[in-house]
């Protein structure tokens, strides 16, 4: 049993606190705890900054195409067929003699436009139908659910091919709408599942007991939950639309070949294989890939990390 050694100063403190001291100490404690509770804000990481830079660069190239491109994308330079990348043609030419770099910049305009409009259309449709199928009473809800199910049972690409076959003349807007109207299924299903999950939640019962209106419930409870779960959706829809346009044009069912888009350039890869012209295949693919990756990375930074608990493994 060790003896306790307190020095004279500490011994003098073995008394109750005075009022003044208590007040002072409590004030200190308050600031101390407030400072400690400051959460660490998520700073934009290096990868997000890089993604923003690259995407901005691509958009800039497409928008400022007339200023940057040295050659006319529609002109056929017959004396420079299938030239590999060099001084004059930065990314080479295709088998028809068109400058690949200009093709990509001008083509980017159409592709990005189609991507954006297609994504907006698909997200809007998906959300409305998905939430509607969960919220509307009995028969309408069931009907919408069946609609989602049968639409999803056929691959999106197949729907797009079918409808594209029916519409012979396609311009950018039409193509974007076709793509948008055929890609909303999975988003609708997810939105429906999330809305349904709320049904069993206790706070919904509480809200009902307060007689909250439907719109209030949607705004307070449904919308934040949807945003946190489905925040990958805009980027995914954009990527899907971009890809769909590329595939459709590659298969010959997208934009007519006279028009320029990344998909049309990619559809030249069949002929490029015969000539072993790797630049016609590689460069458009890379620019498509980079656009999609940067878009996804940017949207990933908005995702709220659910670090609720640690893995129990």
């Amino acid at each position: 049993m060790a003896a306790l050694k307190l020095d004279k100063n500490e011994l003098s403190l073995l008394r109750p606190c005075s009022e003044e001291e208590l007040r002072q100490l409590n004030a200190e404690i308050h600031t101390h705890s407030v400072l400690k509770h400051l959460s660490v804000r998520q700073q934009a990481g290096l990868s997000q900054k890089l993604a923003l830079f690259l995407l901005g660069l691509i958009i800039l190239l497409c928008v400022a195409a007339p200023l940057i491109c040295t050659h006319d994308p529609t002109k056929f330079y017959l004396s420079h067929l299938n030239e590999s990348p060099g001084q004059e043609f930065w990314l080479g030419t295709d088998s028809l003699g068109r400058d690949l770099f200009s093709l990509l910049c001008y083509g980017g305009r159409s592709s990005l436009l189609i991507g954006t409009i297609g994504a907006l259309c698909s997200c809007a449709l998906g959300l409305i139908i998905g939430i509607g199928s969960a919220l509307f009473p009995r028969y309408v809800g069931v009907f919408l659910q069946r609609l989602i199910e049968i639409c999803q049972s056929v691959p999106s690409l197949l729907w797009m091919l079918t409808i594209a076959a029916f519409i012979p003349r396609r311009d950018e807007l039409t193509l974007a709408l076709i793509i948008g109207c055929c890609s909303w299924f999975s988003l609708a299903r997810l939105a429906r599942a999330e809305t349904l999950q709320l049904q069993g939640a206790s706070f919904m019962e509480a809200a009902a007991s307060f007689n909250s209106s439907v719109f209030l419930k949607i705004r307070l409870h449904l919308w934040p939950r949807l945003v946190s779960v489905l925040n990958f959706a805009p980027a995914a829809a954009f990527n899907q639309a971009l890809l769909a346009e590329a595939v459709l044009s590659f298969l010959g069912l997208g934009l007519p070949l006279e028009q320029l888009s990344w998909g049309c350039v990619l559809s030249l890869s069949g002929r490029a294989l015969q000539h072993n012209a790797w630049w016609v295949i590689v460069f458009p693919g890379i620019i498509l890939l980079v656009t999609m990756l940067t878009m996804t990375l940017l949207c990933a930074s908005w995702r709220i990390e659910h670090k609720r608990r640690c893995s129990n493994l």
Binding site: E10, L13, L14, R15, P16, C17, E21, L22, L25, N26, I29, H32, S33, K36, H37
Partner: peptide, 27 residues
């Protein structure tokens, strides 16, 4: 209950005690 990130020294209950001793905040 106190948040135990960089906890101060002394007896941590003193901060919730209605009549603490002065030394509770120190050691």
């Amino acid at each position: 209950a106190p948040v135990l990130i960089n906890p101060p020294s002394g007896d941590l209950f003193a901060r919730r005690d209605p009549c603490p001793l002065r030394i509770d905040f120190i050691k």
